[in-house]
């Protein structure tokens, strides 16, 4: 394969960075209040300079929209990176973080919290419950797969735990089916939303997500070697158990924290690595993880911003980001399956 020229790499990186910037600028101007880009920039500059701005602009642009945009970037990047790591770990382009059951575990804990009114105790209650659910799921995954090192077993255990956590949510919802407010809250949360998230949510999410993103990038070498097969990777010094543990912790951090903060946003981890490969290579294949992972972060961030902005532009029709990504992801999955079958 002919190596790519540095110029082309630079053009790709620049193009993606530009796309992200445009998406961010659009996201800041779309929504109630009809703020122009100039007003947005002036408000942000004044806020950053410690000056006083109109209370309405402060509330909408500074307290809500800016953290929302930043959170969308961070969550999109995280889910994209988690997807790249998961596909690399399982050496399967159809794998996604969802197969490990982490977001489903988080959802089950949150639905339990809704059922018992815990979400109303404090703003942090739902994110903490979701994080606990994600950690519990990760713990169960490790506990159940500790004796067997192979990836197929990890995958199947994840699928089983995913189903179990999903069933737990369903049972809880069935028990409290008559409480329409609970059903409404649970449904809204399970479709994901950036509504009402502020700097506090951003600050809670930043550290674990940034740590997860750094962790994801650090796995690029062993993931590249793993492409050659588990046995070969082992002979080249990749410790399967360590890689598996590291990848699961990274995916757990990225997906668990994202889910804890904004709810369940599915299929991003599946779509994004493919979009990143397609953007960077003509064949859409053969991209080293050292490039695939950061590219997935950028593409994920841009996709999430675009989805959230589109949803807000369609207001008052409520289009939850998770619902939209699932719709896109489902179609993409079918297309991918068909393509893989043809290639195979």
């Amino acid at each position: 394969m002919k190596p790519e020229s540095p110029l082309r790499r630079l053009a790709i990186a620049g193009g993606l960075a530009l796309a992200l910037l445009v998406a961010a600028a659009l996201a800041m101007t779309v929504g109630p209040g009809e703020f122009s880009l100039g007003e947005v920039l002036r408000t942000l500059a004044t806020e950053l300079g410690g000056g006083e701005v109109d209370r309405r602009a402060h509330g909408i642009l500074w307290e809500l929209r800016l953290p929302r945009v930043l959170l969308a970037v961070l969550v999109g990047a995280s889910l994209g990176a988690a997807g790249a790591v998961t596909q690399g770990l399982f050496r399967n382009p159809l794998a996604s973080p969802g197969v490990l059951g982490i977001s489903t575990g988080a959802a089950a804990a949150v639905v339990a919290g809704f059922s018992f009114g815990l979400d109303e105790r404090a703003l942090w209650a739902t994110p903490v419950l979701a994080a606990l659910g994600a950690v519990a799921m990760l713990g169960a995954l490790f506990g159940l797969t500790a004796r067997r090192q192979d990836l197929a077993y990890l995958l199947l255990t994840g699928v089983a735990l995913n189903a179990l956590a999903g069933a737990l949510s369903t049972v809880l919802l069935a028990i409290f089916l008559d409480r329409y407010d609970l059903a409404q809250k649970a449904m809204a949360w399970m479709m994901g939303s950036f509504d009402g998230r502020g700097f506090r949510h951003l600050s809670w999410a930043s550290l674990p997500l940034l740590a997860g993103l750094a962790g994801a990038w650090s796995l690029h070498r062993p993931l590249d070697v793993l492409v050659l097969g588990e046995e070969t990777a082992a002979t080249l010094g990749v410790e399967r158990g360590r890689l598996r543990l590291g990848a699961a912790v990274v995916v757990g951090l990225l997906v668990g924290t994202s889910t804890a903060i904004v709810g369940v946003i599915g299929f991003v981890g599946l779509i994004v690595p493919h979009l990143a490969r397609a953007a960077a290579t003509r064949a859409g294949r053969g991209l080293a993880h050292a490039r695939l992972i950061p590219l997935s972060m950028v593409v994920g961030a841009a996709l999430m911003l675009a989805v959230d902005t589109l949803g807000r532009a369609m207001s008052p029709t409520f289009l939850a980001p998770g619902a939209l990504t699932s719709l896109l992801g489902g179609l993409f999955f079918l297309w991918l399956l068909r393509r893989e079958t043809e290639v195979g």
């Binding site: 809500l64 509504d195 807000r312």
Partner: peptide, 8 residues
């Protein structure tokens, strides 16, 4: 209605 709309 999201929080931004309410604020507006």
């Amino acid at each position: 209605v999201d929080a931004e709309q309410l604020l507006s």
